[in-house]
Design a protein around this nucleic acid. Structure first.
Lengths: 340, 340
DNA sequence: CTGTTAGCGCATTCAC
DNA sequence: GTGAATGCGCTAACAG
């Protein structure tokens, strides 16, 4: 087996307690000469503290759990990077779980993190409308036992976190688009059971209504690239050949969905933005490499993750922060003269 | 504090041992009636096994560590997803560490994983040329203590893993490009100290030489999007206005670099592929959304990750698998008639 | 089949 | 300032 602290103590000719005091900042400071001997012994033997044993003896694990829907999705991987940056060199390790959008897997993940006695759990996958009772109960008991819960996205009554003001952001985005001249909108609203999805669609639609406009169409589907691809394909198939109408602008409730929609538009032989304009939401890094540049609402994804990580470290008492996105209009929503 | 197994045992009126046997698959099967009572008590009290204590008492942690350079890089996040899929519902949790390409951070990550007593460590960040002695020593002692090490990319003598045959793949890619009519190549070779980088560049250059061609230029830089952007910008600034020459084809040793190169090319007012053709390597998912479609060498990224995860589960005795990429020519290397 | 007991490796009180 | 003893929560012999 591996080298134990006891071995190091023996090698250095000191007691277990002293070795322990030397190898981790304890209040009591052993003599310099003794310390050196212990450190030398540890080095020589190749000692590694057993984190499990430490966790058991102390009360903390220096572990934090991050729950995402899909780590390969740029939205989540960017946040994940931020979290790691936020954790910095605090020695805190990140436990990652992906849910594939399945609520039961999210519960499973939280349950597992609870077993691991993580000091904190960061929930970044958007929650559903129905405040899943089982999840809430779990979270509650986790908090009662001293666990910190940080939610990214929609706030959860009892927890701290970074709230994203999806509704207002969508309203502002709609406003900018209208100002730029767009009038005919279609909303790819994603999954109506997800808060994020719903809030973004509602905010957008509300602004339209207030401006005296109404959406040409609202299409639901999965909150993913594939979901948007299918939704858009269906929509295109369904509409009459009204090519002479004013340019359409498709608002997708996420950039990833915008990417799927564009794919569908192109496959049906149309161009973006000449035939149909497209807007997304999030401003994922991927957009930097896509042409035409896709209009969107910029969210400081990496920073959001970093804040979450920092919150964990600061043991902040359920601090809440609200972030709104900034509309960024690029080529994908450029009005095409011939289509006005 | 949290509910302990002892509490459950008391509540159920059985011994600690029995409760333990019920709540986790032990060889000995307690009576059905007793089992139900224990499970009911556990449920009622909201019991969660303390993974740390279990790990200490057993010998295994059901934890595996994954080291990547940057989790926000599609290459790594896709592999990470694969690893999670490979781990499936085995109950094994993933510990994630990012190194930001700094060797010392990689060592730090491995050291931390060793402290966590992870059952296995998956190294996916490409290693440097100099077989970092410190890292090798660490890995060695980890293995001696029963730890499993799986390397993705270049093989490491003592470990199992998925090897990527970068050289042969690059040769095949070069062959396809030549066959399609290209003759004038520039190689954005990335970091010459990284094995991946070097192998890909060398394989490509070797094929050129064997075909009687030689590269118009070989430019080094960071193995990243930014690195390629800068390298390409420099190259473009440096060359004479030889617009009338035959079309250039820029081979980037990774897709992410290709993306950076394309950005540089466009900023200098040139078009891809009309003025300059570009090829990448990896076939990251991002390419699906980029126009023009970028030619590349396809690697089954997610599957590679999945294999790694499965290797961990199967406790495979240092099994090695070799994977080669498949050349995929798309629009970014289409020969432009006017430039022939 | 069930209960008792002895550690797993370490932090930490308490004496010296 | 240093050492001996106790316990963190759980598993795995070992008895019964």
């Amino acid at each position: 087996m591996a080298i134990r602290l006891t071995d190091v103590a023996n090698e250095a000719g000191v007691s277990l307690a002293t070795a322990s005091r030397v190898l981790n900042g304890s209040a009591r400071k052993p003599a310099a000469e003794i310390s050196d001997r212990v450190r030398a012994a540890a080095e020589k033997l190749g000692y590694f503290p057993n984190a499990q044993a430490q966790a058991l003896a102390r009360a903390s694990t220096k572990l934090v759990g991050l729950v995402v829907r899909d780590i390969a999705d740029p939205y989540f991987s960017t946040i994940a990077r931020g979290v790691q940056r936020g954790l910095g060199d605090s020695g805190t390790q990140l436990l990652l779980a992906s849910t594939d959008s399945e609520p039961e897997r999210e519960i499973e993940a939280v349950r597992s993190f609870m077993s691991q006695r993580t000091d904190a759990i960061i929930l970044s996958g958007s929650r559903g409308l129905s405040e899943d009772a089982a999840l809430l109960r779990l979270i509650g008991s986790y908090q009662e036992n001293g666990g910190q819960v940080i939610v990214i996205g929609q706030p959860l009554a009892s927890t701290g976190g970074i709230q994203i003001d999806n509704e207002t952001t969508s309203e502002n985005l709609a406003e900018e688009l209208i100002r730029s001249g767009h009038r005919r909108f279609v909303v790819l609203a994603g999954d109506e059971n997800l808060l994020t999805s719903r809030d973004r669609a509602q905010g957008f639609l509300r602004k339209l209504k207030r401006t005296g406009l109404s959406a040409v169409g609202v299409v639901h589907g999965a909150f993913s690239r594939e979901g948007a691809y299918m939704a858009m394909s269906d929509f295109l198939r369904g509409r009459k050949s009204e090519e002479d109408a004013q340019q359409l602008c498709v608002f997708c409730v996420s950039d990833v969905m915008a990417l799927g929609a564009i794919r569908a538009i192109r496959e049906s032989g149309l161009r973006v933005p000449e035939d149909i304009a497209v807007v997304g939401f999030d401003d994922i890094p991927t957009l930097e490499d896509v042409t035409p540049g896709i209009s969107t609402a910029r969210l400081p994804l990496e920073e959001i993750g970093r804040w979450a990580g920092e919150m964990v470290l600061s043991h902040g008492e359920a601090r809440k922060t609200v972030v709104a996105g900034t509309p960024v209009l690029r080529e994908s929503t450029k009005l095409h003269a011939g289509n006005r």
